[in-house]
Design a binder for these strands. Structure first.
Lengths: 191, 191
DNA sequence: CAAGATAAAAGACATCTGTAGATTTAAACT
DNA sequence: AGTTTAAATCTACAGATGTCTTTTATCTTG
């Protein structure tokens, strides 16, 4: 079993194999439900031998997890604003960026949501909550919390935002993006 | 394939079979991860023939879904307060009830969270959001929204609450319950 | 209670899953 | 470039999956 944590240390062959498998999965997932896909299907599509698949991943769930972790890294790096203003501004900007990020990957992400990959989606929520938590802990903003627990507050608002995004993505006739963001501004106490 | 929508119309044998399977799954799930359980395992535990299993459910995911739907019905009926006061009071009371509901089923529900059953858990969130939405639409409370969209507001606050519950349940050293509820009161605008 | 209906069990089958050992192929290193 | 190293492939296997058909047991209704 191949278990490399650092992408850099991966053999060229390994990177090629993993890339093929991820591509194959992404392609098949938008065609039909994840649940109906077999490891054999993915390997056929990726032109990778099945034993090679098992050398990299224990099962198809783990491949899905791997794919989502890549999406998450992308998401985090493209959503976190460069200049950190107030926690409120940070949150609103990050939310807007996240909305755009997922809007551009709607087909694949909807498939992920319907595929029992939420456990992995929640890792992204964890990461986002941690980011907001760090902002809320800065001494400049502590008093803005009015005695609330920064960890709980971070969970609360990030959870709310992710819930909105999921709802927005899964709706066939989604609310206009601007309306969603306007509403969001009203819900966040101004600091 | 047996496909009865109304529980009442189920043959006694069918109800017995489904009950055994749900019981077996609940027992096995707290012992080891859902993913490691085979349909054969569940059937052995339930003393039900494997072909009978497939007469009721297409796979183990669907059995899990069925089990969670039962939990959800229980949850809804035990969390919705009888007297509907303001949306704020409704939300806070329902949240407190939900917290207690899940606290009492912690082991099983944690197993569910780690088992790719989130798609089903989200159905519960949908139902809760719909309940809050109905309250927010009542003419008495429309002005309390300050122009916000009731559907979006319902999603926002329910999503936030569920996120907190998930976090609270998955934490090994959870924040005291009262602290969570005190924080919650601060986040909800008073009406 | 008996008759008819239907679900559960039983056995069989093709396919998929996850693993192991031996072999081939290709990347990495000096 | 040639050698070393390790990944990918190949073959084979036991167990699980999902779907049949047939037989047996049980429920429901008249």
């Amino acid at each position: 079993m191949i278990r490399q944590m650092k992408q850099d240390h991966l053999d060229l062959r390994q990177r090629k194999t993993r890339h093929s498998l991820v591509e194959a999965l992404a392609k098949l997932m938008v065609e039909r439900p994840f649940q109906e896909l077999s490891v054999s299907d993915v390997c056929r599509q990726a032109m990778v031998h099945r034993t090679t698949f098992y050398a990299h991943f224990t099962d198809k769930q783990e491949l899905l997890r791997y794919m989502m972790q890549q999406m998450e890294n992308e998401c985090i790096s493209s959503c976190i604003p460069e200049d950190s203003g107030s926690p409120r501004q940070f949150f609103l900007t990050a939310s807007r960026n996240a909305l755009h990020f997922f809007r551009d990957r709607k087909a694949l992400y909807r498939a992920c949501l319907d595929s029992g990959a939420d456990t992995e989606a929640r890792l992204l929520e964890d990461a986002a909550a941690r980011q907001l938590y760090l902002r809320l802990c800065q001494p400049d903003f502590r008093q803005a919390l009015h005695g609330s627990d920064p960890e709980i507050a971070a969970r609360f608002y990030v959870g709310a935002m992710f819930s909105l995004i999921r709802w927005w993505l899964s709706s066939d006739t989604p609310v206009p993006e601007e309306r969603l963001l306007e509403n969001l501004e009203r819900f966040i106490p101004s600091v």
